[in-house]
Design a protein around this nucleic acid. Structure first.
Lengths: 231, 231
DNA sequence: TATCATTAATGATATATATCATAATATATA
DNA sequence: TATATATTATGATATATATCATTAATGATA
């Protein structure tokens, strides 16, 4: 990790026009002064389970995973945050310590804003408080929806979901490089690594996708969609 | 459903001392005047997926389930709310329509508060806004945690989870009446009804629990706990 | 009470998934 | 570059779960 020197201006930040829309120019100025931008290389931890909560995190660039390590040492990936996402769960507002870990799965630039500053805005700027709440409350619900979508399906449906997720939600392209390993896909959909590999091979043999290592190209997005919907 | 006539006073409500702690006496008075208490019999719908969001719901008494109906007509239960819980997901603040359905699984009394009133409090009472946010943000995270807990385990671990959930979380007793059918347990843990029944029978044969219809008594809570932890 | 519908229970069988083993390939490191 | 290590790939087998079939028990209703 290294602190980014040539910092960006909050005024031009995409987040500003979303959940930070109702901040006054003075408040925005304060954030702009106090925020810290950090650069993480792929594989670096941003923080781990149990560490105290200090900051509100915003992903400027890159890709990160939120995960928990289970008592049996298995890893379970809760979600993947993409650029312009708030990183984390809403529990940063209710818990003193992080209940999950975050690691960069691509080189990432993360903006750290002291949580007390945000809390103070909620307290003193009613318009911001309501707007922020309306925007951010969507986050955890979409994670719950994803978990339901995945867990009500079996192997092939789950793999289809993951492929569509990266193609449509993250890269907006039919061809992309998988940012995570097959094992991480397994940790994300609660299946074994071998079966993830097998399902991908099957999709390749069926002509649904092309695979070359981490590179995936989707040939037939409609059929993939059907496999996902039917489960 | 019927409107409760002999209404309770918000001043003495358990929720008041939790997420509504920072309301002024005037604000509390307003809620007290505007709130509507409704009684639902076991099995009655409170609302269904797609209906517009109007109210903030608080469960005074009883038990309700939140669920979604999948495209393949399967039901998936997201969570069960117990007395003194806010009912629903935080998406009521971000979405115009409900993204899930709610049904009473026991006779229930639900307190309806117009969502605009809550939103106005968030806007005008900073102390309330922050405190409310800190309290309620915990809700969706606990649902996410539950989904992870369930989905990283297999049949026996999931059944152990459900039994411990009702014994420790809902009824605070070793002996209780299951408020839901075996099929609903299956909808909750993403398993088939037959396997839920089989696992319960196994637990009975192993001397872990006693079963008489809906009545369950836990004999060996430590072993049940172990089965849950180990998965 | 008698009848019907739903839920619970259990066995047999089919299917899905996990685990173990081994090899090939890719990636990291000295 | 050479070597070690992790990832990807595939087959064989074991295990877990779903589905189908049947019966018993329970609850609702006329």
């Amino acid at each position: 990790m290294e602190i980014v020197k040539n910092v960006s201006n909050c005024k031009n930040c995409a987040y500003r026009s979303w959940a930070f829309k109702k901040l006054t120019s003075d408040e925005l100025k304060l954030i702009n002064e106090k925020k810290v931008e950090k650069f993480y290389r792929k594989g670096e931890n941003i923080y781990i389970e149990g560490e105290p909560v200090h900051s509100f995190l915003y992903l400027q660039n890159g890709l990160v995973k939120l995960f928990k390590t289970e008592p049996n040492h298995k890893e379970h990936i809760i979600s993947i945050a993409k650029p312009k996402d708030f990183i984390g769960l809403l529990s940063i507002f209710s818990n003193k310590n992080h209940t999950y870990s975050i690691t960069a799965i691509e080189d990432s630039i993360i903006c750290f804003i002291d949580l007390d500053i945000i809390k103070n805005f909620i307290k003193t700027n009613g318009n911001f408080a309501l707007d922020f709440f309306e925007k951010i409350s969507n986050l955890s619900d979409s994670i719950i929806k994803t978990r339901v979508d995945i867990n009500t399906r079996q192997l092939r449906g789950r793999i289809a979901y993951i492929l569509l997720f990266f193609a449509q939600n993250i890269y907006n392209a039919k061809k992309f490089n998988l940012p995570i390993s097959r094992k991480e896909i397994a940790d994300l959909i609660d299946m074994s690594t071998e079966n993830v590999i097998r399902a991908l091979s099957e999709f390749r043999k069926d002509g649904l996708i092309q695979i070359e290592g981490k590179s995936i190209e989707i040939n037939d997005i409609d059929r993939l969609q059907k496999i996902y919907v039917l489960g």
